[in-house]
Nucleic acid binder design. Sequence first.
DNA 1: GCGGATGATTGAAG
DNA 2: CTTCAATCATCCGC
Length: 481
Amino acid sequence: MQQDCVVTMYSYLDFCICRMPISMQGHVFFYLSIARGPHRGDAWTHTHTHTHTHSSINVLFRMLQPQQPITGNGPSASRGLGLNVHPGMHPLNPVHPHSQHRPDGVPAGLEGIENGHDNRRDIKDILQQIMTITDQSLDEAQAKKHALNCHRMKPALFSVLCEIKEKTGLSMRNAQEEEPPDPQLVRLDNMLLAEGVAGPEKGGGAAAAVSAATSSGGMSPDSSLGHSDYKSKLSQIRNIYHTELEKYEQACSEFTTHVMNLLREQSRTRPVSPREIERMVAIIHRKFSSIQSQLKQSTCEAVMILRSRFLDARRKRRNFSKQATEGLNEYFYSHLSNPYPSEEAKEELAKQCSITMSQVSNWFGNKRIRYKRNIGKFQEEANLYAMKTALGATQSEESPHTPNSTGSGSFSMSGSADCFLGVPPMNGGQPPYHMGAQDAQSRFLERLYSTSESRTNGNWQEQNTPPSATSPGSDHSDNSD
DNA sequence: GCGGATGATTGAAG
DNA sequence: CTTCAATCATCCGC
């Protein structure tokens, strides 16, 4: 019953929407279906169908059931007119005891047959008008509406609606006031602001987001190309977001105005208080804001995808240049006994290799663990770099004017070797650099596999490698810390 | 396309 | 904080 009443209340709205331009109808029905929510009955979602019309008629039928003449005192639900309204249409209130009907089908409560026939004709007229209302042109419909408004039974219908509304507590529906702001929406807002999508100024936020991502991700400097691409994509997202937001706001205000006008107009034919109109507006705003939050969520997702695609360092991984790798390897193998560069050494390496300090740290971390894991594989590489270092040292002895030159010629790690030159050959058949590499390697392994000693280089040197001839003051700073 | 190499990330440990 | 160890994701040579 209550649902039918709701449908009745909406029916006029439905009727008016049917008269709208098609383009507007789509919007209105879309938003109304949202406004109604998923569990307010199915009739409304199947707009301007017979189901809907029938619901409206059924309610009217029920309201017109009282046997006594309608005087504005409201219906008596227990007595019906027993009208056969429409061929094929089921009476909605099946409880019509025969005892209450006269044998000729006229309800017993009617004051007179003629009066009853008049009423029946009136009702039939009204229902017929409603049934055919959607087949008419706008002008015709307006005329019919006017006729209905001026109908002599209209006040009775109005008061009946008032009573039903009061009885069913319809006016109290959705009476709950505005909820506090949704925390998730606040989070989305904050995120969009942080990403520079929802911010007031164009571009600044995006640049800030890029710089933030860069600083946190430790990206290499040569990724500025990606940044401009990222910025343009972010700007696209921002534009779409603002366009859509504007559209939603405009649609919201248009629709609100429209509904308010409709309700005001309807207040002439059915009880609609200004407070109810306000509440309806609030409901519409709430629903629109939920749509907006969906838009915000989608935008956030798009930004996240963009970020992961453009700014995630993993995706942007590039192998270091040959020169950089050579420099790092040189340092590593020449400090094989203690391949832990100090902050200063890292800084210098970073500068020389054109990478960041964190990349240097990563590289050494990876190198240590991978070297340790598979020493045999790196043996050849170790020998190669030991040879290079030895060669460099020899050259520096021969030509003291170029003391820092190395085999690679790319850059120097000044005097940094755990140099192998001073190591007395322990295996006569092998060249000195090899022995040096082995010695350094064994010390490195000692350190790696030692369990108790501290990681600090000083402790390690004290416990594992007493000052030896292998690196007599060779480490200018790196190994001494 | 596959598999190894490699740079980055993550979580635990100290 | 750094380092280790495991892992991921991409690169790159075959």
